[in-house]
Amino acid sequence: MSTVQVSSGPAQTSSMVLSSSIGKKLFMAATGLFMSLFVLGHLVGNLQIFLGQDQLNTYAQALKDLPALTWSVRTVMFICLVLHVWRGIQLYFENRASRPVRYHVNATVQASLASRTMIFTGIGIFLYVVYHLLHYTFIVTNPQYAGLHDALGRHDVYSMVVLGFQNGWISAVYVLAMLCLCYHLTHAIPSFFQTLGLNNDKTRLRFDIIGWLIATVIFIGYTMIPVAVLLKLVILPEGGM
């Protein structure tokens, strides 16, 4: 358990921002928000695969030609990810320590399964992100992708994605990771509004529905890609890569 300053007089504002229990919630909400926005932006990029090889590779090249943008986004994402995961794990153990003697009979009245599995879906997402970066971003696990170029000599991201998802195992892991992500989001999104104090009895159901809707859109959007590749709806370009 973390140690907290005793406050006999007025609590110190600056130290409470991050050290207080509500400050920790705000911290998780803020880092989570940035990552969720990135996930949505990333989806818009990925879906361009359905517009063909030229479109996706043009988009990828455009990002490559903006190193200041891509690297600043990557840096912010990296910081958010590390802090969100580190804080999340810390909170998990802190919360467990708040009840040193456990109940013999455990019952749950209304806490959703998603809320009770945040740490596990979160770790699942984190492990996947590490693999995903090694797979497609830094091309460590499948070095042969590095040699893929299209007719204009650009890195052939399109063929890289299609080749990747033609492997059933990679697609299965991807879909599983998306399930973790979206299940995580069904609790995270309504929690975000609750933590920021924007929730009340009237908005509660609305935020739950918004959470499920966003999570479902993200799940379907991302999962469509490996499914389309496996169903051969998205195929390698003719005449080689």
């Binding site: 358990m1 907290v4 300053q5 005793v6 406050s7 007025p10 609590a11 504002t13 409470m16 050290s19 207080s20 229990s21 509500i22 920790k24 919630k25 909170l91 802190e94 919360n95 320590a97 708040s98 009840r99 749950t108 009245v109 209304q110 806490a111 809320s115 009770r116 945040m118 609790h187 309504p190 929690s191 609750q194 933590t195």
Partner: peptide, 24 residues
Amino acid sequence: RKMVARMDFEGFGNCTNYYECEAV
């Protein structure tokens, strides 16, 4: 400020929006 600081000092856990509290 003071009540939240005291709540944390007493060693209660952090809220993760389970909402079990409301149910009971």
